[in-house]
């Protein structure tokens, strides 16, 4: 779907990007984007609800974190899985590169991507950016990362090369992926400390009540 021009869209809501709105579905206000439904989410005309319980980026927006997303930007999405979140991203953003390394969810990602002409699926390992550096353009406006695997900070550092100097890293850290036995708070401290090698951390927030033991981080390259 072409990015709507400003004139077509009501003023965006607080920190929400253009193309993401709070709308009523069955009497409850929910985040929504415009596009083909992907995971059985409720729809209302062209709009489809974005479930923050199933999406860390959705939770970051629902919790009013300052993502810096404005709509129409270029995005590198790491850990796309079956496309739940990245399909919403492609609904409001510009060119969206979706990296996922597991073949099975990628099959569903292809389906979610079919009606989205600017969603580019890449079956690749986010720890090896040289395997997609010939495809993903430089200076993307945002990296969204949700890889739920050990070494999440390193993945963000490795992919910093794609991010514009004024761009934003929107990272969801899952504590259990780093160490099942440790206290999440300690894991988060370590991840943040590692991240600071390449990023300036602008905002951090636990994603409860949507996701337990996850930390949402907004950062920019330093």
């Amino acid at each position: 779907m072409p990015t709507p021009t400003l004139a077509e869209v009501p003023m965006s809501d607080g920190s929400l990007p253009v193309g993401v709105e709070r709308r009523e579905f069955d009497g409850t206000e929910r985040l929504a984007t415009r596009g083909e439904p992907v995971y059985g989410e409720p729809t209302d005309g062209e709009w489809r609800a974005w479930n923050p319980h199933r999406s860390k980026l959705g939770a970051m927006l629902a919790l009013e974190m300052e993502t810096g997303l404005s709509g129409g930007e270029s995005v590198l999405y790491l850990g796309a899985a079956s496309g739940t979140t990245v399909s919403h991203v492609a609904d409001f953003a510009g060119p969206t590169y979706a990296v996922e390394f597991a073949p099975r969810p990628t099959r569903d990602l292809l389906e979610a991507g079919a009606p989205r002409p600017r969603l580019f699926p890449l079956l690749a390992d986010a720890r090896k950016p040289e395997t997609y550096g010939h495809v993903v353009e430089s200076n993307v406006d945002a990296i969204v990362q949700d890889v739920a695997t050990r070494g999440q900070a390193r993945v963000a550092l490795e992919n910093r090369r794609f991010l514009d100097d004024d761009g934003r890293l929107l990272l969801a850290v899952k504590a259990r992926s780093e160490d099942v036995t440790r206290e999440p708070a300690g894991v988060f401290d370590d991840v943040c400390a590692t991240l600071e090698d390449g990023y300036e951390l602008l905002e951090q927030r636990r994603l409860e009540p949507y996701h337990e033991d996850h930390l949402g981080i907004v950062a920019r390259p330093r």
Binding site: E130, H134, V135, E137, S138, R161
Partner: peptide, 14 residues
């Protein structure tokens, strides 16, 4: 080419 090529440094491909 997408599957097999390698490139460490991204550029403004478009």
């Amino acid at each position: 080419a997408i599957r097999e090529e390698r490139q460490a440094t991204p550029r403004d491909w478009p």
